[in-house]
Simulated scan of single mutants.
Amino acid sequence: MNVLIADDHELLAEAVAQSLSRNEGLSAVVATSLAGTMDELSSNEYDIVLLDLRMPGMMGLSSVDSVLKRAPGVNVVLFSGQIDRRFLDDAVKLGVKGYIPKSMPLKSLDVSLRLIYSGQTFIPHHQPQESQLNASNLTSEPLVERELFVLRLAADGMINKEIARDLGISEAQVKMIMRQVCQKLGARNRAHACVVSRERMLI
């Protein structure tokens, strides 16, 4: 069983790789960015990809989908400290084979990966986060590209005037877009929208 650990936390990734490689019939390689992951998948064969959601190049579900398309037939598993349940459900619908929390003991990781390798989807029980508890406030309508762009700029600390200048629109239009974003995310305000969007790996 060949495992690709796609994670930019090199100390953690190397420790996991070394631990897995001690098991008979199992090898592990590390990639530290989305680009590196895509290169590995193009040039080598893997059975499982442990995919960190916050490494360089990752942009939420669209990046997860890119990895799945680059490696059809490979078991792609989300590898993260925390994850929003709605994001996880959406990722599983795309074809992801489960979720491995980074808090999982190394001695349990081998067993979990072998379950996934055998064809099972692995999702450990975990408590809902705030954004999950407020799921009733969310609409089913996804954010469009312009809304995501405004949200990313806001999360980077830009004020409405700066966002308006970058997009070539008025401040009133920026405010209207942010209201739409908050409504779709069930967020109380701009800052809360940034928090929720990061939990859902949208930005």
Rank of each mutant, 00 (worst) to 15 (best):
P101I: 11
V49H: 01
L151Y: 03
E145G: 06
M59V: 10
E40T: 09
V64T: 02
D39P: 01
D65K: 04
E171R: 10
A154W: 03
N75P: 07
E147F: 06
Q127F: 12
D52L: 15
V77S: 03
K161C: 11
I169D: 04
V144Q: 09
K161Y: 05
A35L: 12
G81F: 12
L78T: 10
E45H: 06
Y46M: 08
M58E: 01
L53I: 02
I116M: 01
V144Y: 11
L61F: 04
L109Y: 07
I48H: 03
T139K: 08
Q132C: 10
A154I: 06
K107C: 13
V67Y: 02
S80F: 13
M59R: 15
Y99M: 00
S66K: 15
N44G: 15
T139Q: 11
L138Q: 09
L167C: 07
Q132E: 14
D47W: 04
N160Y: 03
Q132N: 14
N160K: 08
E147S: 11
I100C: 05
H126I: 03
K107G: 10
M55I: 02
L109M: 15
L53R: 05
I159L: 06
M158W: 07
A154V: 04
R54T: 07
F122I: 03
L148G: 12
R85S: 11
S63N: 01
L153P: 04
R86P: 09
S62K: 15
N137W: 12
L109H: 11
K107Y: 12
